[in-house]
């Protein structure tokens, strides 16, 4: 078994890993909470304040439609933003950690 060669507890205490973990946790949960929050706001708005959602902004396009559309835009934004940060920071930190262990 190859994995037994690693001292997992030691890696977990490695400063590089600690930094990776700290950056990842706040970043990922923050983005997730933002996206889930906006989605439940959409559901709450549609359910309890339909009059606000009915206000027309552009011609006959109303706030409700734009808000729903915004969910997709937010999702696209998260996918791009997370992809960038992960490619740039998380992958680099992981690689440095793996290199250090070898």
């Amino acid at each position: 078994m190859a994995e037994n060669q690693h001292d997992w507890a030691a890696i977990a205490k490695n400063p590089k890993f600690v930094e990776l973990h700290r950056r990842k946790t706040s970043f990922l949960y923050g983005l997730w909470a933002f996206s889930a929050g906006s989605y439940f706001l959409l559901l709450l708005g549609a359910g309890y304040t339909p009059s606000v959602f009915s206000i027309e902004v552009l011609g006959n396009i109303n706030i409700g439609y734009l808000f729903a559309l915004a969910q997709f835009v937010i999702t696209f934004f998260i996918a791009i933003y997370y992809g960038r940060v992960a490619d740039r920071d998380f992958d680099r930190l992981t690689k440095e950690l793996v290199d250090q262990l070898q």
Partner: peptide, 21 residues
């Protein structure tokens, strides 16, 4: 009308959870 579109936002949100967590 728009309720159908509101409905379709759900599946994509599930993928934010998958992507991030």
């Amino acid at each position: 009308g728009i309720d159908g579109f509101l409905y379709s936002t759900g599946p994509i949100l599930g993928f934010v959870t998958i992507l991030l967590l």
